[in-house]
Simulated scan of single mutants.
Amino acid sequence: MTATTMAWERAGLGDPLVLLHGIGTTHDDFAAVRAQLAADYEVLAPDLPGHGQSPPLRTRPTVAALTDVVAADLDALGLERVHLLGNSLGARIALELAWRGRARSVVAIAPSGMQFPLERAYQGLVMGATRANLRVFRRWITPLAGVPWGRTPLLATLRARPWDASETEARAVQPGFAEARRFWATLWWAVLADVPTGLGDIDCPVVLAQGTADWISGGQTPRFLAAVPGSVFRPLFGAGHAPQSDAPATIVSLVHEATSRAKEQ
Results as ranks from 00 to 15, higher is better:
T168C: 13
T168I: 15
T168Y: 14
E169S: 06
E169D: 09
E169N: 07
A170C: 11
A170D: 07
A170T: 07
A170L: 13
R171V: 01
A172W: 01
A172I: 02
A172R: 04
V173H: 03
V173C: 04
V173G: 02
Q174M: 11
P175T: 02
P175R: 12
G176W: 00
G176D: 06
F177N: 13
F177A: 15
A178N: 11
A178Y: 07
A178P: 07
A178D: 08
E179G: 01
A180Y: 02
A180Q: 11
R181G: 04
R181A: 11
R181Y: 00
R182C: 11
R182V: 03
R182M: 03
R182K: 13
W184M: 09
W184E: 12
A185N: 03
A185I: 00
A185E: 11
T186G: 08
T186P: 11
T186A: 10
T186W: 01
T186S: 10
L187D: 00
W188G: 03
W188K: 12
W188M: 12
W189M: 04
A190Q: 02
V191T: 05
L192R: 09
L192N: 06
A193F: 12
A193L: 14
D194S: 09
D194R: 01
V195D: 13
V195A: 13
V195C: 08
V195I: 11
P196Y: 02
P196F: 01
T197S: 15
T197C: 09
T197V: 14
T197K: 06
G198W: 03
G198P: 09
G198H: 06
G198Y: 04
G198N: 09
L199E: 02
L199M: 12
G200Q: 08
G200E: 05
D201L: 10
D201Y: 01
I202P: 01
I202N: 02
C204R: 03
C204E: 06
P205E: 08
P205M: 13
P205D: 05
V206P: 09
V207R: 06
V207N: 03
V207G: 06
V207T: 14
L208W: 06
A209L: 12
Q210K: 10
Q210Y: 00
G211R: 01
T212N: 09
T212R: 13
T212E: 07
A213W: 10
A213Y: 10
D214Y: 00
D214I: 11
D214G: 13
D214A: 02
D214F: 00
W215N: 12
W215P: 01
I216Y: 10
I216R: 04
S217W: 03
G218C: 07
G218N: 12
G218T: 05
G219F: 05
G219E: 12
Q220L: 11
T221Y: 02
T221P: 06
T221W: 06
T221S: 12
T221R: 09
